[in-house]
Amino acid sequence: MPGSHGRPPGATDKATLPRSARLPINRCNLPAVVLGSLTYQRHPSPLLLDGVAELHRDLFRRLDEAGTDARGEVFRDYLTVHFQLEWLEEMGYTGGQKARAKANYARMIRGWSFDSDSREGAVLKGWVESRFGLLPRWHGQPLRDPADDAYGRYMEMRSQGLYGTNALEAQFDLVYTYCQYELARRHPGARHVTLYRGVNRVADHEILSRGEGGRHTLLFNNLNSFTCSRDRACEFGDYILAVDVPLSKIFFYCGLLPGILQGEDEFLAIGGVADVTLSTI
């Protein structure tokens, strides 16, 4: 599972996350300036969201007791009951926009897979911003200045996506934590997975430094889609980015909970600065 494509010649671990791409505070055990840095990509450590493991000890006890094939169903059942996903009235729903009240982690992730610049995408990028302190860099267009119209549109979509829903960000907290639990169980000792992304215009990405042999250092959006299949990535662009992504930055992947992502061997990964290798098809 792990892989390594090296680093751009002359690159050092001093390459880090620009101040404009991070918040000074977040809700996990490492600050954004650390977890979003090139050093972290090369030397990752676990990312723990504040209070999640402590508040949901019973879930992880049940997962420890369940077999490999049963853990996904244990997790789904726990979220359904804990957030009363099938009994909205128990969570205070009294009428109005029931479609919004029915929005849940599965629908948000499916929405992302259809269009990462959708309202669902804005909600997920907002969750990453809140929990990890990494600011989004793109949502339909570049996001560089909170005073710009583009940033205002992103915030409006994020707010609309969260309004009237049932603790969506708390649901995402558990999805991420469960994903990390499963990766640790299925790939003990692994720290990275090599993932791929097909692109048509490399210039659409924020290039921090260029090296030889197609090796560059990029600043990725705060949440990104990749695939574990290079052949699949070739279907999405003329250039292929290969990235050694820390397992601790995987939010969700195809197969974690069957039926949510269909095909494409898709991985949703938290962003930041990363060394990549660029090649042509």
Rank of each mutant, 00 (worst) to 15 (best):
Ala190Met: 11
Gly121Asp: 09
Glu65Gly: 10
Tyr176Pro: 01
Val81Lys: 14
Pro146Cys: 09
Gly6Cys: 14
Gln141Leu: 13
Arg185Gly: 06
Phe220Asp: 02
Met108Ile: 03
Gly96Arg: 10
Gly67Arg: 14
Gly259Phe: 09
Asn224Val: 00
Pro142Thr: 13
Val33Cys: 09
Pro142Trp: 15
Pro24His: 01
Leu85Trp: 14
Pro46Trp: 12
Arg119Cys: 06
Arg210Leu: 01
Asp275Trp: 03
Cys254Glu: 13
Thr94Cys: 04
Tyr178Asp: 05
Arg153Glu: 12
Ser116Gly: 13
Gly10Thr: 08
Asp148Trp: 03
Phe60Lys: 05
Val74Arg: 07
Leu49Met: 07
Ala190Cys: 14
Lys98Glu: 15
Val273Gly: 07
Ile25Val: 15
Ala184Pro: 08
Pro44Asp: 04
His205Gly: 08
Phe83Gly: 06
Arg76Gln: 08
Ala70Phe: 07
Gln180Ile: 04
Leu38Arg: 06
Arg131Ile: 05
Arg232Gln: 12
Tyr178Gln: 04
Cys228Ala: 12
Gln97Cys: 14
Leu256Gln: 11
Ser209Ile: 01
Asp204Pro: 01
Tyr151Ile: 06
Ser229Val: 07
Leu35Gln: 00
Ser159Pro: 00
Arg186Gln: 11
Leu247Pro: 02
Val199Cys: 06
Gly198Ile: 07
Arg137Lys: 12
Glu266Gly: 11
Pro188Ala: 01
Leu48Gln: 15
Tyr40Thr: 08
Gln84His: 15
Tyr154Pro: 03
Leu268Lys: 00
Asp117Leu: 01
Gly161Thr: 07
Arg107Val: 05
Leu247Ser: 06
Glu90Ile: 13
Phe252Cys: 04
Thr94Pro: 00
Tyr151Ala: 12
Ile207Thr: 13
Asp265Val: 06
Arg22Ile: 07
Gly271Met: 04
Cys179Ala: 13
Asn221Ser: 10
Gly213Met: 05
Lys98Gly: 04
Leu218Arg: 11
Gly72His: 08
Asp265His: 15
Arg131His: 05
Ile25Met: 12
Asp244Trp: 06
Cys234Gly: 10
Arg22Lys: 09
Leu218His: 11
Ser20Arg: 09
Ser130Glu: 15
Ala122Thr: 01
Leu35Arg: 00
Leu63Ser: 02
Glu54Ala: 14
Phe252Glu: 03
Ile240Arg: 09
Val34Gln: 03
Phe252Gly: 02
Leu38Met: 03
Glu89Tyr: 08
Leu183Ala: 05
Leu208Trp: 00
Gly10Ser: 09
Gln171Asn: 07
Asp50Trp: 12
Val193Gln: 01
Asn104Lys: 01
Ala190Phe: 08
Leu79Ser: 13
Asp50Ile: 09
Ala99Gln: 10
Arg215Gln: 11
Val123Pro: 10
Thr227Met: 01
Ser130Tyr: 09
Thr165Ile: 02
Arg158Ser: 05
Ala21Val: 03
Cys254Ser: 13
Cys179Met: 06
Ile250Met: 13
Gly237Asn: 07
Leu79Met: 14
Lys125Met: 15
Ile281Cys: 08
Leu134Met: 00
Pro258Tyr: 05
Glu264Ile: 06
Trp138Gln: 06
Leu247Val: 05
Asn222Ile: 02
Ile260Glu: 04
Gln171Tyr: 09
Met108Phe: 03
Ile240Val: 13
Phe252Asp: 03
Leu48Phe: 10
Ala167Asp: 12
Leu38Trp: 04
Arg22Asn: 02
Pro136Tyr: 07
